[in-house]
């Protein structure tokens, strides 16, 4: 996910830099009050932690590897504005110290991996927690979904950026199917690590979890089946919404691009047959393939979420 130099045209890279700088300074302004004192060491610690997590790379498909992003974790531990600042620090230092991600693509990388992951993660976290009781299990379930969806959201935003100023003549539907599908898998891994860390911190130092300040700590409470299905329902609705957004959007974007002529020079529309239009969706046409992939993703996530809840139920009832 660390975009190198030259992957996007100069204008897009520069524009993204301006947007990222704006977002970062907004987050800084929001967080200065909290960053004054003891928060700075904690922010540095979370940054180091995210840095270590981002170094764990695993292959997704040949030619593409994924790693954890950590935006949702930072948002849940430190709140959204400090979270944006923390992950931004990680991305900047990776570019300067480890040549990971191009310096000219810093704006794009900041938007994808610091701003979008943190804000979407926080949004999902709050959304899922809203109808649920303030329990440890609700926090962890929300954290899992927040982490997973933040990664997919980041991938979708990458595709939008690619539509605006990416280099190369690949059809958007292919890029979208590839990115969203692979990042659903990465997101599941991200979800596991996120609940692991949030769970452990909740157990030992609940005061350190910003997103669970309201938590009435009660280790004995059990999750009723009705609440479980509410959680599952909310998850399904969010995922389905994301899928239809993902599948509907390229066409809208292509339309806008064709009307205005930004970035895309006379590229054929997503529905026209390009030589390998079945390239990430195994024979299905793009939009249908994306919806099918999304459906499979929802089922897989359901099962996983159920398993995760089960593990934590057993653990907290001890």
């Amino acid at each position: 996910m660390h975009i190198p130099d030259g992957f996007f045209n100069g204008a897009t890279s520069f524009g993204a830099g301006v947007v990222a700088a704006g977002g970062l300074s907004g987050a800084l302004r929001q967080s200065t009050a909290r960053l004054k004192d003891r928060q700075i060491p904690l922010a540095g610690l979370v940054a180091a932690f995210v840095f270590v997590l981002q170094m764990i790379n695993f292959p997704v498909i040949p030619g593409m590897s994924g790693h954890l992003l950590g935006g949702a974790l930072a948002a849940i531990l430190m709140g959204p504005s400090v979270g944006v600042v923390v992950v931004s620090v990680v991305i900047v230092l990776q570019a300067l110290l480890f040549a990971d991600g191009g310096v000219s693509a810093l704006g794009l990388n900041l938007i994808n991996m610091a701003v979008v992951t943190t804000l979407s993660g926080w949004f999902v976290f709050r959304l899922v927690r809203a109808p649920l009781p303030p329990t440890r299990r609700a926090v962890l379930g929300a954290a899992f979904l927040a982490a997973m969806i933040s990664v997919v959201a980041s991938a979708v935003v990458f595709v939008l950026e690619y539509a605006i100023g990416g280099v190369g003549g690949v059809s958007l539907t292919n890029v979208l199917a590839l990115m969203a599908g692979s990042h659903l898998l990465i997101g599941i891994g991200e979800g596991f690590i996120t609940i692991a860390v949030v769970g452990a911190v909740l157990q030992a130092r609940p005061d350190l979890v910003f997103g669970a300040k309201d938590l009435a700590y009660d280790g004995t409470e059990r999750l009723s089946m009705r609440r479980f299905w509410t959680l599952a329902g909310v998850a399904a609705v969010i995922l389905l919404g994301l899928t239809t957004f993902a599948s509907a959007n390229p066409d809208g974007l292509m339309w806008v691009a064709e009307q205005t002529g930004i970035g895309l020079d006379a590229r054929s529309s997503a529905t026209a047959s390009s030589p390998l239009s079945d390239y990430g969706t195994a024979g299905l046409s793009g939009v249908v393939g994306t919806i099918v992939a999304g459906g499979i993703g929802i089922v897989v996530t359901f099962l996983l979420g159920w398993g995760v809840l089960k593990v934590f139920r057993r653990r907290s009832s001890v």
Partner: peptide, 8 residues
């Protein structure tokens, strides 16, 4: 934050 990160 970057300084603390590098130390941690």
């Amino acid at each position: 934050i970057a300084g603390f990160m590098v130390r941690y």
